[in-house]
């Protein structure tokens, strides 16, 4: 069949290729051009304006710090959750379902939920006050409490974004036959050794995918930060948004967008290099 009509596969993928080209490649090229040109002439003016901006260094630093704080914690929690759920027989599906609820909530809604908890008249302060730990409402999210603000945003991001890592890790763990862990146990490996020397190396592909996905998403953090910190905690996407909407300067906004893309690509390359996946060494 397919030998008679070799063009069939190409026809079949044509719609998705056209879709991608129209809605992804064209805007991408346009954005890159927008960021590297000035009135139709190639120029680095946008990049210079971006780099010279007051918030540029802060937003870059905040975004990286947040990524560095959030991603490892999310990975650790996801591994713990995945290992725990692997030991459960009945009710496993229900627990997984509950754990993935944050995935179904929009970023902004999640940010607002945490705002309701952490604002001056929020649940957290009411609780502390009720327990007699604080005497009056304390501010956690202001520019005067940068550490508390950072922690609040990190916690909210961890709550919101861990489920996707867990889903990938659980899928990876399911790929590892239990005989590997049992064999290790028989030959004298304790739980930690089994985890570090058997399980982790065998779920490399899942680790790699989860880390790439989660890190790229962390570089794109915006809604939760915007809900909790507003402009007190500038991040890269937030700055792009401001240049686009407040300042109506699409060129600088595009420069931010391109920067985020470059950073994400660089992180992906780092992961691809650091966590090598050799199909020869997988189950």
């Amino acid at each position: 069949m397919s030998q008679n009509r070799p063009w069939i596969p190409y026809v079949l993928i044509l719609p998705s290729v056209a879709f991608l080209a129209l809605l992804f490649l064209v805007p991408l090229v346009q954005t890159i051009w927008l960021s590297m040109s000035d009135n139709g002439v190639p120029s680095l003016a946008n990049a210079q304006r971006m780099a010279g901006d007051l918030n540029f260094t802060r937003s870059l630093k905040n975004t990286f710090l947040l990524t560095l704080a959030v991603v490892p914690v999310q990975l650790a929690i996801a591994l713990a959750m995945g290992t725990m759920v692997g030991k459960i027989g009945r009710g496993r599906e229900t627990i997984l379902w509950i754990w993935t609820i944050p995935l179904g909530i929009s970023d902004l809604a999640a940010g607002l939920v945490w705002l309701a908890i952490l604002q001056n008249s929020g649940y957290f302060n009411s609780l502390l006050y009720g327990l007699g730990i604080i005497e009056r409402q304390t501010s956690w999210l202001s520019y005067q409490t940068p550490v508390a603000l950072f922690l609040a945003i990190a916690v909210a991001e961890i709550w919101r974004g861990t489920a996707i890592v867990m889903v990938i890790i659980v899928a990876g763990l399911n790929q590892v036959p239990k005989e590997f862990r049992e064999a290790a146990e028989i030959f004298g490996a304790g739980p930690w050794v089994r985890f570090w020397r058997i399980t982790l190396p065998l779920i490399r592909p899942a680790l790699q995918s989860a880390l790439i996905l989660r890190t790229v998403l962390a570089f794109e953090v915006f809604s939760v930060v915007y809900a909790l910190g507003g402009r007190n905690f500038p991040v890269l996407v937030g700055e792009a948004y401001n240049w686009q909407n407040q300042n109506q300067n699409y060129g600088v906004a595009a420069a931010y967008a391109v920067l985020i893309m470059v950073v994400s690509l660089a992180a992906t390359v780092v992961y691809l290099r650091a966590i090598k996946v050799d199909p020869e060494r997988l189950p």
């Binding site: 005989e179 590997f180 049992e182 064999a183 028989i186 020869e280 997988l282 189950p283």
Partner: peptide, 14 residues
């Protein structure tokens, strides 16, 4: 004090 051989070998691929 025992060792075991599994049906699917369970030889560590990595």
């Amino acid at each position: 004090g025992l060792a075991m051989v599994f049906q699917n070998y369970a030889v560590f691929p990595h």
